[in-house]
């Protein structure tokens, strides 16, 4: 019983991580189960979002402020970790770029084949 409460405590402390895992799994389900290519790509974007949430959460500090040094702020523990945020900024831009390229390919595919259904596209050959 004691072990179980300890486990739940650990889970509750890492609540953001659990949400990130859930989002990842939702995205994975969308990628596997849906046959529409745009929906598949939406799933991929959900996976990306979950990874962003996970990495930004790993830099969080309880009661931490945004790392902008101004007047009257000196204690170093008062700020959250800036490195994950800088990394995720890169990640968001790359996610946007891949989305743009994928969507343009889908537009061309729809013009040529008239469908975005992955199962039907497989039969076209």
């Amino acid at each position: 019983m004691n072990d179980l409460t300890e486990l739940f405590n650990k889970l509750f402390v890492n609540f953001n991580y659990i949400v990130a895992a859930t989002l990842f799994v939702i995205g994975l389900y969308t990628v596997i189960a849906k046959s529409n290519l745009i929906k598949k790509f939406m799933g991929l974007n959900i996976i990306e979002t979950s990874v962003f949430l996970f990495i930004v959460s790993s830099g969080a500090i309880v009661g931490g402020k945004a790392p902008i040094i101004g007047e009257g702020v000196s204690s170093k523990t008062a700020f959250v970790n800036p490195i994950p945020q800088a990394l995720i900024l890169t990640g968001i831009v790359v996610a946007m770029s891949t989305t743009a390229v994928a969507l343009s390919l889908m537009i061309k595919l729809y013009e040529q084949c008239g469908t975005l259904n992955a199962d039907k596209l497989k039969e076209l050959k």
Binding site: I61, F79, I83
Partner: peptide, 23 residues
């Protein structure tokens, strides 16, 4: 994720390496 260090504590390994210097 249960075995990860608790979120939000300043003793996280991610927080103790190069971050103090940046801040």
């Amino acid at each position: 994720m249960v075995s990860l260090p608790p979120m939000g504590s300043p003793e996280n390994p991610a927080y103790s390496h190069i971050v103090p210097r940046y801040l």
